[in-house]
């Protein structure tokens, strides 16, 4: 059985091709999904890729959240469809209220592109089960608005429920509260991540291949399901 992972292209998506490559390298079949099309083509999981959808001129992800494809994504995510939002995808998930909190302008006010060290904090989600608990990885990070914020109660809740799935190590690159790099929903099928694991899947073009387990995790989960 080939696992089919949809990757949505919004106008202004940039890392959609790269997310499809990562899905392919992980051993699944990437399916290109188009923002104007509600039909998810019965994919087994969805990736919302990085980029600047609609130019991010209003608020990052604020317009994409209303695109036809997101109606289906939101509906099916609530029913358990695994969804990974990377960078702009994370922002869209927050705007969609599939995940709590918001991503704000980096505290230093510059776009930043660097090889970022992370610790995987939760290996029970759909997208992180292939990591070792507490595993430290280095993957590219590139964002202008990556500072994760939420009120203290929400942050406490995320911590208490183990929904902080990855944390920045050594350096907090954007002022995220509690060094949060990624979170999940309560069910663990929806994950938002600011760094870019799809750019760490080949030794030649990434700093490491330590982003790959995000894509293999989903495969195993679906095969075992």
């Amino acid at each position: 059985m080939t696992i089919r992972v949809g990757v949505v292209t919004f106008p202004g998506s940039l890392d959609d091709h790269d997310a499809r490559r990562a899905v392919r390298i992980a051993g699944a079949e990437p399916i290109a999904l188009w923002h104007k099309d509600k039909n998810l083509q019965q994919v087994d999981a969805v990736v919302l890729p990085g980029g600047f959808s609609y130019g991010d001129y209003l608020r990052c992800g604020a317009i994409s959240r209303f695109s036809p494809v997101m109606e289906s994504v939101i509906e099916q995510a609530q029913a358990g469809l695994p969804v990974l939002g990377i960078c702009n995808g994370f922002q869209i998930l927050c705007e969609s209220h599939l995940l709590p909190g918001a991503l704000t302008r980096n505290d230093h006010l510059h776009f930043i592109c660097r090889d970022q060290k992370l610790r995987i904090e939760n290996t029970s989600t759909a997208w992180t089960s292939d990591f070792e608990p507490g595993q430290e990885i280095t993957v590219p990070l590139k964002n202008g608005e990556g500072g994760f914020v939420a009120d203290e109660r929400t942050l406490d809740m995320l911590e208490a429920e183990g929904r902080v799935i990855a944390r920045y190590l050594d350096l907090n690159p954007n002022g995220s509260r509690r060094d949060i790099a990624g979170i999940s929903n309560a069910a663990g099928n929806v994950v938002g991540l600011m760094p870019h694991p799809e750019h760490a899947v080949e030794p030649l073009t990434g700093p490491t291949t330590e982003g790959l387990p995000f894509f293999t995790s989903i495969l195993k989960r679906l095969v075992n399901a």
Binding site: L14, D15, R21, C113, P140, K142, H199
Partner: peptide
């Protein structure tokens, strides 16, 4: 150079501070 995205498109083999930029 940290303010520029050097990873997008996933084909960057060499970028600053290397002698030349190289893409696959």
């Amino acid at each position: 150079t940290d303010q520029y995205d050097r990873y997008v498109l996933g084909n960057t083999v060499l970028a600053q501070p290397e002698d030349s930029g190289m893409v696959r």
